[in-house]
Computed example of a mutant assay.
Amino acid sequence: MKKYRILLLLSLTVTLALTGCGKDKEKDAEIKETPAPVESTAPAPEESDSSNTEQAKSDEPPEEGMVRSAMTNDWISPETASARPIAVMFPTDKGSQPQYGIGSAGVLYECMEEGEMSRQMGVIEQWQDLKQIGNIRSGRDYYVYWSQEWDAFYIHWGGPFYLREMVDRSDVDNLSAASVGVPGNSSPALGSEAFYRSDPKNPTIHNGYTNGEKLTAAISALGYETAHREKYYQPDHFTFATVSEPNTLEGAPGVFDAKKIDFSKIFTTTKTSLEYNEEEGVYYKSLYGQPQIDKLTDKQLTFDNVIVQSTYWDYRQDNKYLRFTVKDTTSDGYYFTRGKGIHITWKKTSDNEPTKYYDDNGNEIVLNTGKTFIGIAQNGREIIYE
Rank of each mutant, 00 (worst) to 15 (best):
G20K: 01
N73A: 04
P61N: 03
L12M: 07
S147D: 14
A56V: 02
Y233K: 04
S179Q: 09
Q309S: 07
L274H: 03
E386R: 14
S48T: 08
T242F: 06
S77I: 06
E386D: 15
D168E: 05
T302I: 08
S331A: 11
S118A: 14
P183M: 08
V144R: 04
D318G: 02
Y196I: 10
Y385T: 13
D24H: 06
V88G: 02
L301A: 02
Y288K: 06
F324T: 10
G380S: 12
I376H: 06
K327G: 02
Y357L: 01
S273M: 05
N73P: 01
G159Q: 10
E364R: 13
G95K: 11
D151T: 06
G370A: 11
N277Y: 00
D59N: 13
D93T: 13
Q290M: 10
T34R: 10
L130Q: 08
T53V: 13
G181R: 02
Y224E: 04
P160R: 14
Y284E: 11
I219K: 07
F324A: 10
L16A: 03
T369A: 03
A36K: 07
I261A: 09
K285L: 07
H206G: 10
V182L: 00
A152P: 01
N368M: 03
F267M: 05
T345Y: 08
V308P: 01
A252D: 08
L249D: 08
D257R: 10
S96P: 01
D257M: 09
L190P: 00
L175E: 03
S40H: 15
E46P: 05
R164Y: 10
S186Q: 15
